[in-house]
């Protein structure tokens, strides 16, 4: 009865396949793809951090709909999100809790990579992109911390941005560059906002893509308990 429908779907898939080779990609990457047997739960931490990254993107975009990046209105817009906007509290708390969870999970992911020796040849580039991702995660947490313009964010950022000060010659310049002035001021909020919502997430997305590409190209590294006889 619905054979015309499956015919239509087949013709559509053929149409796409002719232009992209999608059937071969699905075969190679999904249906005939095999992962080493007996992997432990530590191997899921990379996928989990990707999931949290997605969660942060979704909650972050929802927060953007109501957050106002100005020193006068930032704190009151957060109060409005927490108290007036339906489920705003859920989105805001998830975004804040997600940042802590992200750090915990990527640190565990990194520790498991060290313990299983998965950073070794030929996976050096995967490790390097992972290191860049950790640094960017810390940077995105740091810039996001100032955005609520609370007493905590203001003073914690004041202390943290003064850390490069003792570096000879360039130290004071670095501090001024990060703050956009001698002290934390409205311009600091603006540059942190730009970094937090577009620059760092965009670079992270590209790096996540590269990281996953390498994982697929090189295959998943065997754990110490998956012996070579599991392989062909």
């Amino acid at each position: 009865m619905f054979s015309w429908l499956s015919d239509l779907i087949d013709r559509f898939i053929d149409w796409v396949h002719y232009r992209t080779g999608i059937k071969d990609i699905v075969k190679e990457q999904i249906t005939e793809y095999r992962v080493p047997p007996k992997l432990n739960k530590w191997y899921s931490l990379g996928g989990l951090s990707l999931f949290i990254f997605g969660l942060q993107l979704v909650t972050g975009v929802l927060l953007l709909a109501y957050y106002v990046p100005s020193t006068e209105s930032a704190f009151s817009s957060i109060q409005r999100i927490m108290l007036e906007i339906p489920y705003g509290w859920l989105v805001r708390l998830s975004h804040a809790a997600g940042s802590h969870m992200m750090i915990i999970i990527i640190l565990l992911h990194m520790v498991s990579v060290i313990f299983m020796g998965s950073y070794k040849k030929p996976r050096e580039m995967t490790w390097l992109s992972g290191c860049a991702l950790i640094l960017l995660t810390l940077a995105i947490c740091f810039t996001g911390y100032l955005l609520p313009w609370s007493q905590l964010s203001y003073w914690a950022t004041t202390v943290a941005t003064s850390i490069p000060e003792p570096i000879p010659v360039i130290g004071p310049f670095l501090v001024k560059l990060v703050r956009g002035g001698d002290h934390i001021n409205p311009d600091t909020l603006n540059r942190f906002f730009a970094l937090h919502v577009i620059v760092i997430p965009a670079v992270m997305l590209a790096l996540v893509g590269f990281h996953l590409f390498l994982v697929r190209v090189l295959g998943i590294s065997g754990s110490p308990d998956s012996k070579p006889e599991d392989q062909e």
Binding site: V35, D230, Q231
Partner: peptide, 17 residues
């Protein structure tokens, strides 16, 4: 890249995650 002929199949390794 090593091939694992007796490895986990498609929905299984996703479900692990």
């Amino acid at each position: 890249k090593p091939r694992f002929s007796k490895g986990m199949r498609f929905p299984t390794f996703i479900m692990e995650d």
